[in-house]
């Protein structure tokens, strides 16, 4: 087993709608997507973004593109145009998602270069 940062194996992009931020996270293949399914639970994402996300976190699954979509509510301190945050449109939530670490079997990492 290896502990890897998502930064080294995944893609992520985030965007805003009102006070909600969504984060798309993409696995490079089916096997790692299954690890994402098991380990990237809404509870874990909510805990990871503690202090930034005040509301609930929902997770949607897209096996067709090995993607997960996290919808984070009350995530922008009021929403883009009334928030004092510098990242007022939530553009950096994707990057910050990539700080997360997961456990992956060593053999699954052999062919992954990112």
């Amino acid at each position: 087993m290896a502990v890897v940062k998502l930064k080294d194996i995944a893609q992520a992009r985030s965007g805003d709608k009102g006070n909600i931020v969504n984060i798309g996270v993409f696995a490079p293949n089916q096997a790692i997507y299954e690890e994402f399914l098991a380990q990237l639970t809404p509870e874990r994402i909510k805990a990871h973004f503690a202090g930034l996300v005040k509301g609930e976190v929902l997770r949607y699954e897209l096996p067709n593109i090995f993607g997960l979509n996290f919808v984070c509510k009350e995530a922008l301190a009021g929403g883009g145009s009334s928030s004092l945050r510098l990242d007022n449109l939530g553009k950096c939530f994707g990057s910050n998602m990539l700080r997360l670490e997961i456990e992956v079997a060593d053999h699954l990492l052999v062919d992954i270069k990112k």
Partner: peptide, 13 residues
């Protein structure tokens, strides 16, 4: 392309 696919989408279904 897939990064844009989920951009500012909530329920993808």
């Amino acid at each position: 392309v897939k990064e844009q696919m989920l951009y500012e989408i909530h329920d993808p279904s």
